[in-house]
Design a protein around this nucleic acid. Structure first.
Lengths: 337, 337
DNA sequence: CTGTTAGCGCGTTCAC
DNA sequence: GTGAACGCGCTAACAG
């Protein structure tokens, strides 16, 4: 490992001159600069990050913390974040919380060790404790959902696609196609995520004068497995629907799996539209209609806003909200009464 | 931000006593310890990582570098790495190279800034330059393929599932089911990855006395899109096969997509078996038979071996090779002549 | 234009 | 058992 002192020795200059040459800060003759660069090249010098950080307190890293690494919803977001950060010469530190609130707080607390300069945080369930912990990190932060907390309003930015509108669009699409018995396949109804999506579903129904029927609400947990099981159970218990709105692709696919096992044909016997529009939608047969939640853009803008707070010391709140878009494929059939 | 000096002030002790108390190193009375911990708790003290690192030169981070973040092949591996590292209280720094050899070298060179303690490196195409760059980082390294380089033999560990055996298994499975005209859907034939898999394919054929037919070899690039296109083209050009071995799930799915567009039924008209066994195989209809490459275990063991080199200063090579396993689903049909 | 000095926060001597 | 002092590598302030 070579340091500026090695370069200083080799060139006969002092360490500070070497530092100035390398950073282009302060005065330094061209001749000295040349010598320094030559020696640095020859010695394969790369500055020691820890020392730089100790001095400047900038780490060139931001943490991206998500509930579940295996959820395809986040893949595009990871990509968006990584690619954007690359332009800033920043690295991404990936953490995941396995949906555990304790784990979330633990990670946030560890951040006080300031091993990153900023934070992009995704959660299924924001709450005041969490937001306070986020604020306590003192880090420029973007969260990937909408969450309002008047006390800490300015401590974070929100970047997200409108969840309730997404569910509205999905539901409305079913209604447009003549469906009235539309099942809702959601996650834990106590979590913000499902709540918002459920709200959009209800609104679409009500706007069209279709009453919300509680027997059509199925609660799962955003996994394919449980959705499969719950939907199968729903049908076996004589559940009657002609369409289903699934709160994410994994559950949409679980639903398709169930249909296939039950001998139900999609979209002839049952129409399915899901939310997230991950690549999984292209794997199914028929390809699945799904609502694009703009995950890639959410990642990109979240990274950009965090960097804006870091670089430009912005200290007021900025939110960016995307409008979800339905991607029509072949899992929805028009029916007529 | 609070430092040991703040705690020293508050407790009336010296900074070194505080440090000793906090780390449990050196002498310290129980009474002092109690006071220190109380103050640390109250002040929300978390040690400043950069300072710790500068002193100890340990970062508690390892880099996981892969060619493509969006390739589902790596999802399980990321999970395996992350979960294992968590036990060691290590964080994962995620980088991706977009298949670019220049980018690979750039990242490896940046690692000389020692902002991580170890490296897990995945590539589609190892070569002497790359391995030398890996060795030059001076970091404990695990690579997720087999690659031999006698000069730098001991500088890295290899953790992988036997690629050629995986292709052999897939091909053999087709043969067992009566197929003789088996297409091979691969990536760039110059890359190690495809080469190994192709070798297994050929061996299985030859063992059964089936000649390798070059018209059945289709080169794509591991993406769904190109596989779809290439396979469609293959069929349109009167390509005749009853089964296809796809080198990864994405291509297997592209192939299924193509079949569906061409009006070919899987598995009645054509059997498909792919490699990787990602979750995507459960999305298709019918579910796709695929060979499990043990990605999760590869990630877990790679992390473990890197940590072993770090913690126990192991300096000799250790390889772990897993045996791939076929997961039979419904995309392969037995045919009789 | 260049070198000397000091200090970022922490951990580890080594005196007391 | 405790505190003063030093240094990890780098940069900024100042003196020359």
């Amino acid at each position: 490992m070579t340091t500026i002192y090695d370069i200083a020795d080799k060139t006969g200059l002092s360490a500070s001159t070497v530092a100035r040459a390398l950073n282009g800060s302060g005065y330094c003759s061209d001749k000295a600069k040349k010598k320094v660069f030559a020696a640095a090249e020859e010695l394969g010098y790369v500055p020691y990050q820890a020392a730089k950080t100790l001095k400047s307190s900038i780490t060139n890293k931001i943490m991206f913390c998500i509930p579940d690494i295996m959820n395809p919803y986040y893949f595009d977001m990871i990509k968006g974040v990584t690619q954007t950060l690359e332009d800033y010469n920043y690295n991404i530190l990936l953490a995941y919380t396995m949906h555990s609130p304790e784990k979330e707080l633990e990670i946030l607390n560890s951040l006080k060790g300031r091993y990153v300069d900023g934070l992009i945080f995704g959660s299924f369930d924001y709450n005041p404790t969490l937001i306070e912990a986020i604020k306590d990190t003192g880090l420029p932060t973007a969260i990937t959902s909408f969450y309002e907390n008047s006390e800490y309003h300015n401590y974070y930015d929100c970047i997200y696609a409108n969840q309730s509108r997404a569910a509205w669009i999905a539901t409305h699409h079913c209604i447009e196609n003549g469906h009235t018995r539309i099942a809702f396949l959601g996650g834990d109804p106590k979590e913000q995520n499902t709540k918002e999506r459920f709200e959009g579903y209800c609104r679409a129904l009500e706007e069209s004068g279709i009453p919300v029927d509680n027997t059509l609400i199925i609660n799962a947990n955003f996994t394919r497995e449980l959705a499969l099981q719950k939907f199968q159970q729903f049908i076996r218990n004589d559940g009657k629907c002609t369409a289903v709105v699934a709160c994410n692709d994994l559950m949409g696919i679980g639903c398709m799996n169930a249909c296939s096992m039950l001998g139900l044909k999609v979209p002839d016997d049952i129409s399915i539209v899901s939310l997230d529009n991950t690549e999984y939608c292209l794997c199914t047969n028929p390809p699945m209609t799904s609502v694009d939640m703009m995950q890639g853009k959410v990642g990109t803008e979240a990274a950009r806003l965090v960097m804006d707070r870091i670089l430009n010391k912005r200290s007021y709140r900025t939110d960016i909200v995307f409008s979800p878009e339905i991607i029509k494929r072949e899992s929805v059939k028009k029916i007529t009464l």
